[in-house]
Nucleic acid binder design. Structure first.
Lengths: 178, 178
DNA sequence: AACTCATATTTCACCAGTGAACAAAAATAG
DNA sequence: CTATTTTTGTTCACTGGTGAAATATGAGTT
């Protein structure tokens, strides 16, 4: 695969040429968007790569981490869908796979019998605790050269972007009033 | 789907709880990583959403944009793979689809008969020129509230991250010396 | 109670992307 | 000049993820 830096150079040039043909393009913002997408994708790949030896993909990992981070270690498919941005269909498959490996359990809810309660098992907790530490050096290395101000800036700007996207979504799919 | 802001709140809390159980976790960097992944994914979805009315997905669009941005409007499958971060397999399928729609042509190279030359057609150019302008307001809106310094910061930090990832990759898959 | 209407999850059929094996042409070695 | 190795692209079989319909429960309304 090509180095990310090369892709960025080529993207910079490409946007430069396009913005000469189409002058009212917001070239700066377009560059930032492409940058964000490229770096985000590269991070995704890196995570996937790091998880591969443990035979879990990113979605499985995220699901497991949410359960692990919960005080009671449990959730429901619907909630997990919301926070992993996965469709319900896919969550069913993920849960099937994790149940088969003994990392979570699936049981019926007492209060609402439509619901399914998903709970991380002791084996699941051990799995997470074994998985995480080897990841730490890479996570730190990715932010090499970032001082505290850089980290704060980056966090602030990403959160601002999230905010903007939420507002954009709400204005395109307006919320129904009761 | 859940608002991105809610996902972020829940992620912040989750990492807070995990880092109490596992104190040597690089919590700040983990938060930044998750933030980047979430916002990146949200951008991806937004792009996909904006392209849907035109019946192209992100990969098709990128492929087409690279060709459009080239002075001669042409490239090869291999090169397109590199710059779109797509596998060769998938590029074959993408090219098939775009050829079928008459937006690109596929022809044999004269100099190297292994190669296939992919070229954007006039219809492809018109397609891009019609597609782009409606995207501009959204691209600008995503960066609402970013002043020039913010934009420069964001660009610098993302490029730094790209650099770090490239170095990480090179140290894990060392380059073979001749 | 019977009748909607909304919610939660699963099943099914399909789309997008990947790795491994393959075929053709070019480059390189002997 | 043949023989091997490398490069380029395609096909095939598979995994991961999605939308639409099916199923089952719950909640609200006469």
């Amino acid at each position: 695969m090509a180095r990310l830096g090369d892709c960025i150079v080529m993207m910079d040039e490409g946007i430069g040429r396009v913005s000469q043909v189409i002058p009212d393009m917001p070239a700066v913002e377009a560059r930032l968007t492409r940058l964000l997408l490229m770096v985000g994708h590269a991070f995704d790949d890196a995570v996937e790569e790091a998880l591969k030896p443990h035979k879990v993909n990113h979605s499985d990992f995220l699901t497991l981490m949410i359960l692990y981070s919960r005080p009671d270690g449990s959730s429901t498919p619907g909630e997990l869908c919301e926070y992993t941005s996965q469709g319900a269909t896919n969550m069913t498959r993920i849960a099937n796979a994790l149940v088969k490996r003994g990392l979570i359990t699936r049981g019926a809810s007492e209060e609402d019998r439509r619901r399914v309660v998903i709970r991380i098992t002791p084996a699941g907790r051990r799995f997470v605790q074994k998985l995480l530490p080897p990841l730490f050096p890479r996570v730190s290395a990715a932010f090499a050269g970032f001082n505290d101000a850089d980290k704060r800036s980056f966090s602030r700007l990403l959160r601002k972007l999230a905010d903007n996207l939420d507002q954009l979504d709400e204005s395109t799919f307006p919320k129904d009033a009761p």
